[in-house]
Write a protein that binds this DNA or RNA. Structure first.
Lengths: 253, 253
DNA sequence: AATATTAAAACATCTGATCTTTTAATATTT
DNA sequence: AAATATTAAAAGATCAGATGTTTTAATATT
């Protein structure tokens, strides 16, 4: 008949409450820091049991919209959704989509070269100093382990933060987090580490010279090199298990 | 002391259970479709009350990782996280970050011109036909209303889907959804509508000629034009309120 | 003035009962 | 035999109320 109806689920009390409160937040009737009534009072207000209301609070908390504190002057407070909440959500999503390394690389090649173009014009001496220290730390890191990825994330995060675009910051950070979290691959060999450092150095050099084109090309090369490295050394790399231990990755398929 | 400790929250039973189950999913010990024990059984297994376990299930459901069905052969089933869940999370996040139109435009100018470059090589006659029909529908739309944005989203979504990059699809869709959901701006004037259609036509023409450079430039122009249009007509545009009604936007600040 | 104690508010958890939904199994009808 | 209606059981949804734990403001003590 050309018209598609959507499936409807029976309304759960807690879901109904969740939607009302989220709606009030999006409609700006509730602001950050506002306190909701206590479980007992609000349950009575809605005419539902405490458990139903508690489930609603749990869900809103999971959305990152609520902070619940125990104790005397505790309660439920409207909270700004933080980056971690969204990143976790993206990680969950990517876990099932399971994109290939190519897909991660592609989005990075779209964004990050353009980011450093902007950086080349805006960057300050303090920023340069920060990036140089980051590279130094990475070089001095004795045998890699997972610190490399933290430093790597920090390097790219710094650049994207200079661009002052909150959306792009979120994307770049999440893509990198997802890549590391999902693949759980950390490259520990000297050669890979050196390649990353060299790439970062070239980028910083171009930025120091305020050369957008050179910086952009250096970033593009760097991303592609890292991809090549990840593809090639897949078998030889280490993966981090859920328990935090390191074990040899035998490569998939 | 140079070392930063992170704050720790007292462990809640439900949170502990959530982490265990999410961990098992990420560790691939639980797969899509797997059924978890019933509330009663699992609560007993963990040695906790049913309410605590229920709260854990609610949270996992909010994460999009669980589907809970009532009835005889119901129960809790591991579910693939769907796009809606992540988009909602992004919408929540952007609501507080409240990025400017410039930030939305910028990320689009980074990604979409490159997307159509790829499309120019991959696109099929069916795809072209789809896009042409989309433009026709938009032209025939009598007086805009919110259908325009649905068609606009569909147009850009189609292009990004051709690139077969799940990450980029998610980003482009979410950015557009967030822009419309948060700003709640719909342009109803004839002039704006015509400008969008013309932009889309130029893009499709370039794609039909398999001209990546021309397509990419047409997309870049289109995005920038739309931004200009949104900025300029901010006062004259309509906004959709929470209740779905349309009212005149008087412009902010 | 500093410190220790106490009390109350609010969340956290538990127990156990009852209601509702869904479906598999059974019974009935055609 | 096939279609339809009924029934029973499994599992979640909701409720009520009791008890435990955390946090902090108020009070008492040193």
């Amino acid at each position: 008949m050309g018209f598609k109806f959507e499936t409807v689920k029976a309304n759960r009390i807690s879901q109904n409450i969740v939607e009302q409160i989220r709606g009030a937040i999006l409609a700006k009737e509730l602001k950050i820091g506002d306190q909701l009534p206590s479980e007992k009072d609000f349950a009575k207000h809605f005419g539902v049991s405490k458990s139903s209301l508690r489930e609603a609070y749990r869900v809103l908390e999971a959305y990152g919209l609520l902070e619940i504190r125990q104790g005397m002057s505790g309660g439920a407070f409207i909270k700004e959704v933080d980056l971690t909440t969204v990143k976790d959500s993206l990680v969950n999503y990517f876990f099932f989509q399971n994109p290939g390394i190519r897909e991660y690389t592609q989005i990075r090649t779209f964004i990050e070269p353009q980011i450093v173009k902007i950086c080349a014009e805006k960057i300050t001496v303090e920023d340069i100093e920060y990036l140089e220290n980051n590279i130094l730390a990475m070089e001095q890191e004795p045998d890699g382990k997972h610190f490399i990825s933290d430093l790597d994330i920090a390097f790219h995060k710094k650049l994207v933060d200079i661009s002052k675009n909150k959306i792009i910051s979120l994307i770049v950070e999440s893509v990198q987090a997802a890549l590391i979290n999902i693949k759980r691959i950390v490259h520990t060999d000297e050669q890979f580490l050196k390649m990353v450092c060299d790439g970062h150095k070239k980028i910083v050099n171009a930025l120091r010279e305020s050369d957008p084109k050179k910086a952009s090309e250096a970033m593009l090369d760097h991303i592609n090199e890292v991809e090549k490295g990840m593809m090639a050394s897949k078998k030889g790399s280490m993966i981090i298990t859920e328990k935090g231990l390191l074990k040899q990755d035998r490569g998939s398929k």
